[in-house]
């Protein structure tokens, strides 16, 4: 067994596949640096991230599988799940070794795994498109904080750019400590210095902001039909871990 350790980047992960073919490795496990735990039984290969090598793997893949399947692999990478590197590499090797694209061969475990993780991440992306709640600041910025299960900011940028084309917005991932900002022209990644933000917090929002939050909370309470109460279903759709960022759920 060979353990390939990569730097946690997408390029690094693709380089693992390059390594497999360059060194003719067979049994492999792929793990990111931050998760790597040495053990006595496997040989460790530190994989160097190299954009050219990654590009070769990616371009080669493009001739073997559909665009959709390629995007699916990237989506899976964003899941940040501990074993996902191994599944992605296994899938890519299948793509190079099988006579036709394995993307629909759902009876193969790694293919089904990719399809399932893709759905999980996609669902989280969709949840963020639904659950993000902007608050308007005094300088006309619509601001939202999120803590998604997976790293979905790269996947949601386009949706928000298309939809809110005429307003400046910033979506910040508190878990991963970066955000995306739209300045009416382009979306860019940002890192904010959050020290001292708590102190000032109170006055940054526009005068109307509390009113619209109140209206939204009232609306949420009044469209509910009490005779049909179904807490299980409610929690299935809006799991508790999302509540702290949902305006309508912040009523005491």
């Amino acid at each position: 067994m060979n353990t390939l350790v990569y730097d946690g980047t997408w390029i690094g992960l693709l380089c693992c596949v390059y390594e497999v073919y360059a060194k003719k490795l067979d049994q492999i496990a792929v793990v990111s640096e931050s998760r790597f735990m040495p053990d006595a039984f496997s040989e460790v290969n530190k994989v160097v991230s190299d954009e050219l090598r990654a590009r070769r793997v990616w371009d080669g893949l493009a001739t073997r599988i559909s665009k959709k399947a390629m995007h699916r692999l990237y989506t899976c990478y964003l899941s940040e799940l501990p074993d996902i590197g191994s599944s992605i590499c296994t899938f890519i090797r299948l793509a190079f070794d099988m006579p036709e694209s394995p993307e629909q061969a759902y009876a193969i475990p790694s293919v089904l795994r990719i399809s399932k993780v893709d759905r999980m991440v996609h669902r989280e992306k969709h949840r963020m498109e639904a659950f993000i709640r902007f608050q308007l600041t005094r300088d006309d910025l619509y601001f939202a904080t999120i803590e998604p299960d997976f790293n979905v900011l790269p996947l949601i940028a386009k949706h928000f750019k298309n939809r809110y084309a005429d307003q400046r917005w910033l979506i910040f991932d508190l878990k991963r400590n970066y955000g995306i900002y739209y300045d009416l022209e382009v979306v860019s990644e940002v890192i904010i210095d959050r020290t001292g933000a708590e102190k000032k917090g109170k006055n940054i929002f526009s005068d109307d902001e509390p009113l619209y939050q109140k209206l939204w909370q009232e609306y949420f309470a009044h469209v509910n039909i009490t005779e049909r109460k179904n807490t299980k279903l409610h929690l299935m759709h809006v799991p508790r871990r999302y509540w702290k960022h949902l305006t309508e759920k912040l009523v005491d």
């Binding site: 659950f131 298309n162 049909r228 409610h234």
Partner: peptide
């Protein structure tokens, strides 16, 4: 470059009876 678009539809929240809003 106005406000909003339409697509597959999004349920932004769910009421306590489990219906989509």
């Amino acid at each position: 470059k106005g406000l909003g678009d339409t697509g597959n539809g999004i349920c932004h929240t769910y009421t306590e009876d489990g219906r989509c809003v």
